[in-house]
């Protein structure tokens, strides 16, 4: 790849929630800012910009990643997933999302997108997690509203439900 000059904006292309997307960015632009303000997918939130709070967590090539600690240019050609890609279709919730709603696992909802992304990645690889394992994964996220307990319950409940079905059952809302 040629050297990208600091003084210019350069095209960045990758797949976002299964769709090819493209935008332009200075080399220094954070992935979080690119997704939100260039591509207009504002579901991913920015809480600390130093990698601690976890609100901006997305999936890059199937792994959890802080989008505030990733440059847009770094995901060129990657497969990125965000909270907007979790629901199977408009008007439906994924099993995990539905479990969150059922268990009141969110209040203000600001940190929720990142938590959902971590759990979505984790549960795909670990279909039968223990509660300490879920708490361990969640320890990379800060939530100020819920005290975490309902999030843990929602995650465990979703894992149980997912293990019962071979495909992601979905849930209607609205």
């Amino acid at each position: 790849m040629p050297r990208l000059s600091a003084a210019q904006r350069h095209p960045v292309r990758f797949r976002l929630n299964g769709e090819a997307v493209e935008g332009i960015a200075e080399p220094r632009m954070l992935l979080a800012d690119f997704i939100r303000h260039e591509l207009g997918r504002t579901g991913t939130h920015v809480g600390c910009e130093h990698g601690v709070c976890g609100a901006c967590t997305v999936s890059i090539d199937g792994t959890m990643a802080r989008s505030c600690l990733t440059l847009a240019a770094q995901v060129e050609g990657c497969e990125v997933r965000t909270v907007e890609g979790l629901a199977p279709e408009p008007g439906r919730l994924s099993v995990l999302q539905a479990a969150f709603r059922r268990h009141h696992a969110l209040q203000c909802g600001f940190c929720t997108a990142g938590i959902l992304m971590s759990l979505d990645v984790y549960l795909r690889a670990h279909p039968a997690p223990t509660e300490p394992e879920i708490r361990e994964v969640l320890s990379g996220h800060l939530c100020r509203c819920t005290g975490y307990a309902p999030i843990v319950r929602a995650a465990m409940d979703a894992a149980a439900e997912l293990s019962l079905s071979t495909r992601q059952e979905d849930v209607r809302y609205v």
């Binding site: 790849m1 050297r3 990208l4 000059s5 600091a6 003084a7 200075e26 080399p27 220094r28 954070l30 800012d33 910009e49 130093h50 440059l71 240019a73 770094q74 060129e76």
Partner: peptide, 21 residues
Amino acid sequence: MKPAPFDYVQAETLDEALAVL
């Protein structure tokens, strides 16, 4: 809280990275 400007090289080979360094 945004980075100061910098150039960016996504090296594809070790030699490319070492040349920039």
